[in-house]
Each structure stands twice: as structure tokens, then as C-alpha cells.
Simulated assay, not measured.
Amino acid sequence: MRITHGIHPMATRPSAVAIGNFDGVHLGHQAMLQQLVATARARQLTPCAITFEPHPREFFTPEQAPARLSNLRDKLDGLRELGIEHVHICRFNDILAHMPATQFIEQILVRGLGMQHLLIGDDFRFGAKRAGDFALLQEYSKTHGYDLNAMTSITVNDLRVSSTAVRDALAKGQLALAQQLLGRPYRISGRVAHGDKLGRELGFPTANLPIKHTKLPLTGIFVVEVHGLAAQALPAVASLGVRPTVKTAAQPLLEIHLLNFDDNLYGRIIHVDFLVKLRDEEKYPDLATLTRQIQRDVECAHDYFNHLPVA
């Protein structure tokens, strides 16, 4: 998959384009991108997705911006798996925020990406002051010769699939609902980093994934599966949060204790799928109390995996 950046993309051949933040790459995004890829292949175009980094709301109102569902690695992995061959990442800065919608169409879409087909969500707005919409794109299609479609919303049990709905389910610990909306378990990926080794001292060594953004879509203790270390997923229990018993005002961290597995994981890229929430993160009076609770969490995780139905 080709990845480009900036406001002056250079396409190698004509493109079919979808635009969005694609946060979480949920079922709605998947339906949209599958339709785009099918059209691109039928017309011998490059299936291309445009996304923004950071999220526009992180630029305009960072304190009110929603928690990210996916880091850039997971988003790109999701787009690649759906058959997207080119991802153009628009850095959302002051220049892009003030770019007129007409300039976005002409400079980025038409001249930059050689767009011949465009697929957008039914609520998509773009350009300075969000002035660009379907009607403007349709008007300019007559001049620039591209065709245009809008994707209708996807629903699951009468609930509109959206990144907001996924965030709400995760925040409430409703991982089964989040999985329905995503079409897969909620996942966080990253490269295992060195930590303070406290887990090993307590008898529960962990693989640590630092979290770049301080706003989390979910926190607590979870039963998880880890991919990327063996041919099959490995069972584990994980803590996602700020570790209030041992830290003050700490950066969020994902700590994973693998069950029945002990190896040097530093530097390895792993993918952590969240299956069940066990409890909220808590502050304990001392490390002995914390250790006893971790032992109970590990036992709960073992019970979960021991009682899974045999395929």
C-alpha cells in the first residue's frame, strides 16, 4: 500500500477516492471502502482513501476532541486489509483548515489524485468553515469529469454504526456491542517497550504498550487475546489506564500479562484484542493488595478461556 502526505499529492494513475477520518474502521467504513474497491477494480482505477492527521476536532478544540478509537498503525492496517492501495494523509493544520472547499477539490482531488470517482459519507463536509458538501462536489463534477456517490448509513439492530456509537459502547464496557459495530473485537496495536519492571517484581510480568494520546475510549482491566507472537492468538489479561496505585498523573499505558507464556518481547509489534471487561481501574492502599487483586484477575482470565466452547 502506498502512503503519501501533504496538500500536493502525486498520483501514479487515476483514482477512485473515499474521504473520511476512518477512526476505528468500523462496519460503516468497511461497507464504504468495499464498495469503493469494487468500483475501482471494475474501472481499473487505484482505490484511494484520504484521511486526516490529526483529527480536525483535535486541531480546533483539542480539549473537547473525542478519544481516538485507533492509532495510525491500526487505521492503516484496516484500510490495507480492505484492499485500499493508496492512502493520502492530509496533515490537518492551519493551511488545510483555511483551504477553500473549491481549492481542495481542484488541488488535492482532481490534479493531485487524478480522481475519476468519489465516494463520501452521507454527512460529509469539508473545506474552510465546512462549506463543501455533496452539492458542491456534484457541481464541480460537471467541470472536472468525475462521478460522485454518497454512502448511506449502516445500522446494527437499529443503531447507526458510527465512531461515536463505538466510543459510547467502549466507555460503558459493552465490548460485545462494540464488536458488533466494528465487525471484530476492539484492538490496540503497538511496539512492546521497556517499563519499570514492577509487574515482574510482583510475579506478573507484562508487555507494555505506551499510549500516545491521553484520552482513552476505555479504561480498566480486561480479558484479551494477543496476536503477532505465535501462529494462534495467545490468551492474556490486560490493564489499560494510568496505574493509580503506583503512579501519579502518569501517561496512559496498556500492560498485558500473557497466560502461560514467557519470552523476551521487547521491540515486537503485537495486536491486542479486547474481549471482556473484568472491572474498572482502582487505586489500592499498598502493593500487597494490588498483587492479590491481580491474582484474582488472572484467575478470572483463566476461567474465561477454560470455558470457551470447543470449535
Rank of each mutant, 00 (worst) to 15 (best):
273 D>Y: 00
29 H>A: 06
243 R>A: 13
94 D>F: 03
183 G>Q: 07
50 I>R: 05
255 E>D: 11
80 R>L: 03
256 I>L: 10
296 R>P: 00
301 A>K: 08
10 M>S: 14
213 H>E: 14
56 P>D: 12
52 F>M: 09
306 N>G: 12
147 D>I: 13
182 L>D: 05
54 P>Q: 05
131 A>I: 01
249 A>K: 15
267 G>M: 08
308 L>W: 01
243 R>T: 01
36 L>C: 10
190 G>V: 02
245 T>Q: 06
255 E>M: 08
30 Q>T: 14
180 Q>N: 12
120 I>D: 01
183 G>H: 11
49 A>S: 03
304 Y>H: 14
54 P>S: 05
39 T>I: 09
112 G>L: 10
155 T>N: 05
34 Q>V: 00
33 L>C: 08
88 H>M: 02
93 N>D: 15
71 N>M: 02
85 E>K: 06
292 R>N: 12
27 L>I: 07
81 E>I: 00
145 G>H: 09
164 T>V: 06
78 G>C: 01
85 E>W: 04
67 A>Q: 11
281 E>K: 04
68 R>K: 15
110 V>T: 03
136 L>R: 04
253 L>D: 05
17 V>Q: 09
21 N>P: 00
64 Q>M: 10
269 I>G: 00
297 D>C: 06
99 M>Q: 09
109 L>N: 12
287 L>C: 00
232 Q>M: 10
177 L>A: 07
247 K>W: 11
40 A>V: 10
305 F>C: 01
39 T>M: 09
303 D>F: 08
120 I>L: 11
39 T>G: 00
265 L>M: 06
63 E>V: 00
251 Q>E: 14
166 V>D: 02
99 M>E: 11
35 Q>C: 03
209 L>K: 05
126 F>W: 08
37 V>I: 11
191 R>D: 01
161 V>S: 03
107 Q>R: 15
33 L>Q: 07
2 R>M: 07
230 A>C: 07
30 Q>M: 12
178 A>R: 03
191 R>P: 00
294 I>G: 05
294 I>P: 03
231 A>T: 13
247 K>M: 11
